[in-house]
Nucleic acid binder design. Structure first.
Lengths: 132, 132
DNA sequence: TCTTGCCTTGACGTCGGCGTCAGGGCTTAC
DNA sequence: GTAAGCCCTGACGCCGACGTCAAGGCAAGA
């Protein structure tokens, strides 16, 4: 299949595919007139790339998975290098989530403090009076 | 004080200060020779900007806080516009944390599955045998 | 006077992952 | 023959928050 069809099938753009090729991630064969040609294997590689991208992996991080598949392994994560990327990503995610959670708490505290300092604030709880 | 001193006191760079000025966020007075001049009020504004930046606010989001301070309020978040930014940021953080948590779970599951499919895997639990 | 160290403006570079032309070629249908 | 619809290779644009020159001015000490 040609580039347009591959892009359509995978749900991406021809521009992205050319970009991946320029990065050496998804090279293409060429027909006589210079058109790029792809097969179902390439579609599989592309899907692997896109799945990881959705997870927030950047392109370079998808490379071990793609090379693993190209080496003939059934899954992109059948190779140690891919597992290494997974582990690094998990650590990265944990650190990021922890940081964001901390920030969230601080911003929440700031908001609460600021609201409390303002007249006609955030539905003051102290006006509740039992069941009446 | 001049730009270098302000930058040093706040722990940032002169380039950043000129950038903030170019965005209209932190304008400076000028001396006869064209040098920028700042006072302690500007230092306070700058600290507000930097604190929010540390929280991951982008520059535009700090603007209401800075304008609030410049309007004479004791805190940058003494104004409704600032509270609005806080709230939007909280929602944004919640969404992001949720998404990252989901991704973390999925990546973790992928790693576990991939490790299980590999020989000499991740210290198999099944070899434990009671207290002996 | 000369050096040193501050300051000025202007403008290009960075990073990632493409989007979006511009200019041109092949192929097929009409 | 020509229009339509695919394809090709550059190459610049974008976004945010500055970093990093380049070329030059001003002030103060030796």
């Amino acid at each position: 299949m040609r580039i347009g069809e591959l892009a359509a099938r995978a749900g991406t753009t021809t521009r992205a595919l050319r970009y991946y090729e320029s990065r050496g991630l998804l090279p293409a064969r060429r027909t006589g007139n210079g058109y790029r040609t792809y097969d179902d294997g390439d579609l599989k590689l592309l899907r692997q790339i896109m799945t990881l991208q959705d997870f927030g992996f950047d392109l370079e991080e998808t490379r071990p998975f793609v090379e693993c598949l190209r080496a003939g392994h059934p899954e992109g994560d059948s190779c140690p290098a891919s597992l290494g990327v997974y582990r690094r990503k998990l650590a990265e995610l944990d650190a990021l989530i922890e940081q964001l959670t901390s920030v969230r708490a601080q911003v929440g505290a700031q908001l609460a403090r600021a609201e409390a300092a303002v007249p006609g604030g955030p539905e003051p709880k102290c006006e509740l009076g039992g069941h009446a």
